[in-house]
């Protein structure tokens, strides 16, 4: 870059004049600040592929990849981006196709400081999910859509999540297809969660919960504003509403 020698007449080149500056030498911090103003896809489809110098910035700045909303993409397809964000990633949404992918997301020490994790179509095991939640100490919002799950494991999963992360503000674990493997098993364990003092929004799928269990659950969530239980029958919904009438809480099915 050289300073413009201003001996030319008053007229300055307008916005459409071709540039003679070397934009690949744009300082790192500036290009980074520019990229912060672009959306994920715009960076990937643009700046990332313009030249090596620019890509060096986009790949090397974890802060650009802090908020990864992959929509309906599979986690395994965006491992490269997960790596770019490293431990600084705070928000993550994707479809989750395997335990391996999920473990990749929460790998390393320290684990990523995810505050919000959303897993769509989560084809993962109880162990992998439980293990991940245990690692994500800063988690505030967790959304998991399980395609299918047995009643027993489902309840156990929610209990484990609540025990590990009592600071959650939002918890949604839903099952597309709940399966009751042993319908007549009489000695089922009672469903109990610890006190969730930050929880505002709770979403579940009806998997054999009794009204008593649900009332006890609500009692342990003092700040709860919204409870949604997919598949709850009308009669139970009515009973539940009656028993929690005094609370400032919306219960839907």
């Amino acid at each position: 870059m050289k300073p413009s020698s201003d001996h030319r007449p008053h007229k300055k080149p307008g916005p459409s004049a071709p540039t003679s500056r070397d934009w690949t030498t744009l300082p790192h911090d500036i290009l980074f600040a520019v990229c912060l103003k672009l959306e994920l896809r715009e960076i990937l489809r643009g700046a990332d592929r313009v030249c090596k110098g620019w890509r060096h910035v986009t790949v090397g700045e974890p802060a650009l990849w802090r908020h990864l909303d992959m929509g309906t993409m599979h986690l395994s397809q965006c491992r490269d981006l997960v790596s770019r964000g490293g431990v600084t990633c705070e928000f993550f949404t994707a479809r989750c196709d395997s335990d391996v992918s999920l473990r990749f997301l929460v790998r390393g020490h320290p684990a990523p400081c995810l505050k919000s994790l959303r897993l769509l179509d989560a084809n993962v095991s109880f162990e992998a999910l439980n293990e991940s939640v245990q690692k994500l100490a800063q988690l505030e919002e967790l959304d998991v859509e399980l395609p299918y799950c047995g009643y027993k494991w489902y309840k156990k999963l929610i209990q484990c999540i609540c025990e590990a992360r009592p600071q959650l503000r939002r918890l949604s674990v839903t099952v597309g297809l709940p399966v009751q493997l042993y319908p007549k098993n009489p000695d089922r364990e009672k469903f109990v969660i610890p006190v969730m003092c930050e929880l505002r929004s709770f979403e579940l799928t009806q998997c054999n919960f009794t009204v008593d269990e649900l009332v006890a659950t609500i009692d342990n969530c003092p700040l709860l504003e919204s409870l949604q239980i997919g598949g709850l029958d009308r009669d139970m919904l009515r009973q539940l509403r009656e028993r929690c009438e005094a609370k400032n809480l919306t219960i839907t099915s």
Binding site: S4, P13, G14, P15, A17, P18, T19, S20, R21
Partner: peptide
Amino acid sequence: LSHDALFD
């Protein structure tokens, strides 16, 4: 601004 001026 021209692109050069913006760069500078």
